[in-house]
Write a protein that binds this DNA or RNA. Structure first.
Lengths: 140, 140
DNA sequence: GACAGATAGTTTGATATCAAACAATATACC
DNA sequence: GGTATATTGTTTGATATCAAACTATCTGTC
């Protein structure tokens, strides 16, 4: 596998981004959370209360994985579940006060990640890069 | 979410590439192998016999993970271990005949992945993209 | 209204992955 | 030569993740 292979680079960057996320969560005193938990919290901050199924879309993981991740967040007190009143199959996931209180931390972590990733590239390059990545993503 | 676009896209592409790899391995009759196993086989095809420690470098995983991955490849008959004669701590990992026979498959899978990823972009865009990704990768 | 098929989530079992502790061996320094 | 330190790899325990089977509920059609 060639070291300048685009796919290889993407794998490396993805790995580093995840590692950075984990480190930052830790640094902000948010212990025991993986990047995926952060993504869920971010989705809830952005969209408010959402269904499990919507979460599988937002963070692109198997529904059984979402069940496990959400249950952990419930156990840690960041998130709560609520049965839909009209459709009993549906579960709504929302932030607790404790979860909502994470907003400043999550925003700052997001900012840190962005800063680190974009450190060496200009706004124009960023646009170029995003456009190319979108092409690749939509073609795969 | 907009501003995290690039990192988000990289995550998506990484996921799809891994999924494609797994599907292709399966399609070539190489069953029960994850992308990481493919990376190890690829490394061995490229470098010949290597030490465990070298493998952790090549595929960038924890050494205990490498132990597990290699043991599975041994169990499946693709790979063999050999103790170094002068330094007894060292283990050399090499392909068996059965492992070496995978070369054409692995090369074709690699080609397929590349083709799929580069489907919509020109050679020039590819160079631009690789350069930008390298900048990001080295800055993280 | 009953029944077939669709949908929402959970459970179960398996695997890749990591970190920390460990064992075995080699090297350096006195 | 003997002891402290470094290295190579494994073991152990925990977690995220997936796929497949399952449960419960809803919806559409006869």
């Amino acid at each position: 596998m060639n070291k300048d292979h685009i796919i290889f680079l993407i794998g490396r960057i993805n790995y580093k981004a995840n590692r950075l996320l984990q480190e930052e969560l830790e640094k902000h005193g948010i212990r025991g959370l993986a990047p995926s938990h952060g993504e869920i919290l971010g989705s809830l901050l952005l969209h408010g209360e959402v269904q499990m199924t919507k979460l599988t879309e937002y963070i692109d993981k198997d529904k059984s994985t979402i069940t496990a991740l959400v249950n952990k967040l419930v156990r840690l007190g960041y998130v709560k579940k609520r049965k839909d009143t009209s459709d009993n199959r549906v579960t709504w996931i929302g932030l607790t006060d404790r979860g909502a209180a994470l907003k400043p931390d999550i925003m700052e972590i997001s900012r840190t990640l962005r800063k680190r990733a974009y450190e060496n590239i200009s706004d124009r390059e960023k646009d170029t890069l995003a456009a190319l990545l979108m092409k690749i993503n939509s073609g795969m």
